[in-house]
Amino acid sequence: MANILIFDSGMGGLSVYREVHRALPGHQYFYLFDNACFPYGELGEVRLVERVIELLTSFVPYYNIDIVVVACNTASTYVLPALRDRLHIPVVGVVPAIKPAAEYCRSQGLSHIGLLATPGTVSRRYTADLVQRFAADMQVSMLGTTELVKMAEDKLAGQRVDITRLSRILAPWRDKGGPDVLVLGCTHFPLLAGELSQCLPRVELMDSGEAIARRVADLLLQSSVAEGPAGKVYCTELTAKARSQGRAFAQEGFEDITRFVG
């Protein structure tokens, strides 16, 4: 049984956890979210790299973690090389699903890919390189926002999603014709899949969850079918909101939320 860590600034990594757990249910899962610095999309690059390394170089040895999934697109585009230099276990990052989106478009005779992500992911050279490498023959439009990150967090805390507000954010695509395929380039965004489909009907949604699950299974060189023990969830600031978010984790089979002091 492996100790698998899912890491994010907030609860968006739950969308990745669900896919990994579905593929590998018989392992021990740890979830660490850095709510003290949430959202990562609003941090500068230097501070973000320092923060992630500070947390994970403390957490990983303390809990004897076997593999880390950085379930945050923003963090993945900045921190993976430095983190892999510091940790001696596999580290899996999340990248926008541009390649499978382009493959799907070609198979269906479509041509317009939308990327919905945080401003940091949208502006990164890494993202531009993905588009150039896998979708150079496609129309690719991008929309960067951190508002949806907060909306997803609020939804998991039990609040209603404001569809009118969401529609305003998506207005560039609603007013001028939306994409054929929408890549959800932030792990929080699949948590709003139903609401996104309501605002952009007939648009195919695509994220990286299944690909990440396959990658974790390949690195562990195993799969399992038996249900594992309850997961353990940690935050970096035990606020009233974090306690309410803990109820969403409890629905996924996690134990009571605990503060991690690195």
Rank of each mutant, 00 (worst) to 15 (best):
F33Y: 15
F33N: 12
D34N: 06
D34Y: 01
D34W: 01
N35S: 08
N35K: 09
A36R: 15
A36I: 07
A36T: 10
A36N: 11
C37V: 10
C37D: 03
F38Q: 09
F38C: 13
F38H: 13
P39R: 11
P39H: 07
P39T: 11
Y40T: 09
G41H: 10
G41Y: 06
G41R: 10
G41N: 07
G41L: 04
E42Y: 12
E42R: 15
E42Q: 15
E42W: 13
E42P: 14
L43S: 11
L43W: 09
L43V: 09
G44A: 12
E45C: 10
E45R: 15
V46N: 12
V46S: 13
V46Q: 13
R47Q: 14
R47S: 15
R47V: 12
R47D: 11
R47L: 12
R47I: 09
L48V: 08
L48T: 07
L48I: 07
L48G: 08
V49N: 07
V49C: 10
V49S: 10
V49L: 07
V49F: 00
V49M: 04
V49D: 02
E50C: 12
R51S: 04
R51G: 06
V52I: 15
V52R: 12
I53Q: 11
I53R: 14
E54M: 13
L55F: 07
L55I: 11
L55M: 11
L55W: 06
L56S: 08
T57I: 02
T57D: 00
T57A: 02
T57Q: 04
T57K: 07
T57W: 00
S58W: 03
S58I: 03
F59M: 02
F59G: 06
V60H: 02
V60D: 00
V60A: 04
V60P: 03
P61R: 13
P61N: 10
P61C: 08
Y62K: 15
Y62N: 13
Y62I: 12
Y63W: 12
Y63K: 13
Y63S: 05
N64V: 09
I65W: 05
I65S: 04
I65Q: 03
I65G: 07
I65V: 14
I65K: 05
I65A: 08
I67W: 03
I67A: 04
I67S: 03
I67L: 15
I67F: 03
V68N: 04
V68S: 03
V68K: 07
V69P: 02
V69R: 05
V69M: 01
V69W: 01
V70A: 01
V70R: 02
V70K: 02
A71I: 06
A71L: 05
C72I: 01
C72F: 00
C72K: 01
N73A: 05
N73R: 09
N73V: 01
T74A: 04
T74N: 05
A75T: 00
A75Q: 00
A75C: 00
A75V: 00
S76D: 01
S76G: 10
S76K: 06
S76V: 00
T77F: 05
Y78M: 13
V79H: 08
V79S: 15
V79D: 03
L80R: 14
L80G: 14
P81L: 07
P81Y: 06
P81M: 10
P81V: 11
A82C: 05
A82N: 08
